[in-house]
């Protein structure tokens, strides 16, 4: 009996997850297809341009980031899976996107829930953003982009620059 209960609960949870995901992901993928076909990537990425530039990430990270910020990590993660499948996103971009989104995602729903029960909106919202920014920046600096990695640190030699 207990086993049946468990299977029933899992089935219920999975079904509601599936419906919830499908409602957002399918329209989102249609929009994404348009964005790709009309080559709007560059136009869209300007929204997050300052962030992407500081983290030295490619424009292809902007859609997973935007999706995760607005809809939540399941959807942002979904777009990362999709971008990785299409080979658009590097390992570094993938990790930085996931790190940033893990800390700061679903900015409307999650924050409003807690503000509604009396949490300080500034601390909840700004605090979370600042920490996400700081942690991602830390890893972005730690994980140098490919060009920089080739530069070998050689003490006492000042003409050791890689031209890129």
């Amino acid at each position: 009996m207990d086993i049946l209960n468990i299977i029933y609960d899992v089935f219920n949870e999975t079904l509601s997850f599936l419906i919830q995901i499908a409602i957002i992901v399918i329209p989102l993928m249609i929009v994404l297809q348009f964005i790709k076909e009309l080559r709007l990537y560059d136009k869209l990425s300007f929204i997050l341009y300052p962030l992407l530039r500081i983290f030295k990430m490619s424009k292809y990270s902007s859609l997973p980031l935007l999706t995760g910020l607005f809809f939540g990590i399941a959807y942002g993660g979904g777009l990362i899976i999709q971008s990785a499948r299409e080979g658009l996103i590097t390992k570094r971009d993938l990790y930085l996107t996931i790190i940033f989104l893990s800390i700061f995602h679903s900015i409307f729903e999650d924050n409003i829930l807690f503000i509604a029960i009396g949490a300080d909106p500034y601390i909840v919202f700004l605090g979370r953003f600042i920490l996400a920014f700081a942690v991602t920046l830390f890893f972005a600096k730690l994980w140098k982009t490919e060009v920089k990695r080739k530069r070998r640190p050689e003490p006492e030699s000042d003409n050791y620059w890689v031209v890129d």
Partner: peptide, 18 residues
């Protein structure tokens, strides 16, 4: 193509959470 990858992605995510 969009619908197809949307369904594919929904299915991938669902398989992941079961």
């Amino acid at each position: 193509n969009g619908i197809k990858s949307g369904i594919q992605l929904t299915w991938d995510l669902t398989k992941t959470v079961i």
